[in-house]
Amino acid sequence: MNNIFVYLEIENGKTEDVSLELLTKGRALADKLNCKLEAVAAGSGLNQIGTQVFPYGVDRLHLFDDKRLSPYTSLPHTAILVKLFKEEKPQIALMGATGVGRDLGPRVSSALFSGLTADCTALEIGDHEEKKENKTYKNLLYQIRPAFGGNIVATIVNPDNRPQMATVREGVMKKEIRDANYRGETVAHNPSEYVSDEDFAVGIIERHIESSKINVKSAPIIVAGGYGMGSKENFELLHQLAATVGAEVGASRAAVDAGFTEHERQIGQTGVTVRPKLYIACGISGQIQHVAGMQDSSIIISVNNDANAPINTIADYVIVGEAETVIPKMIKYYKKNSK
């Protein structure tokens, strides 16, 4: 009772990274709260899940193995979590801010009347005072996220309702094995006790899932462009620089919204979170929602015509100038000086 639950996303019998990252965070929170970490796997062919997740410090693994539960559909997985949460009464429930988690989370929170905060960039434990009611709440989950298009950062709490639910995007939390020999308990549930036939109202006719060719997340160097790049054509310059220095091209949300490049390249709270050894930000002003996704880069270079762009304050190197002028020179002098 009152433990921390993580919903596992599973594709072809393999637990997705985002879930392992959440387990890592969940373990740390459980240690702080002195409670257990539990994980929920619903799908089919789940015999390897235990081996995959126990090293992250999972104390109890709930298995719901049924062919009809894979691939994911909204209602059956909702039914499982709602009933399980009513039985187990978790204090915290975490899931990925992915296509699955953002479909499932709100539905579960509505059924349980528990608050849900989307796309958190940090989760902490702390106390909360409701001054009006003169009440103090101990050890709440602080759900921290940029809000309002990334212009402010909000800390959200759920004082009275349980579980406290939050979604987190892939890459935001770090994935770290707790103990390779850690072994928890496995509880195999009977899915038919949780899911009814009516829950299969939406059926999958066709499905093509492919691993993306664009891999911004694991690139050691990223050349990212913002709205200040001005056009799709100017984005081509970024690709040239990236090809020269062995980098991947990223983008801010404003650049993606403006149609300069693909959505897969979006870095920030509503895109991917990256930690490269070098981040070259071109024409990016530095809204919080972007900075949240790249501030842990080892070295940051900002190329911006505005010497006062917010991103310059976190940059190690600031080049004040037009990206169109600066980037070709960077290419030229890299080629000239590299051995």
Binding site: G115, A147, A154, I288, P310, T313, I314, A315, Y317, V318
Partner: peptide, 25 residues
Amino acid sequence: SPTKVKKIENIVFQAKESKAFDDSD
């Protein structure tokens, strides 16, 4: 509303000491 906004912050970035360059060759 089960969720309450505890705090709203205008984030001040942890400023680094940065090296400044202009766009000359």
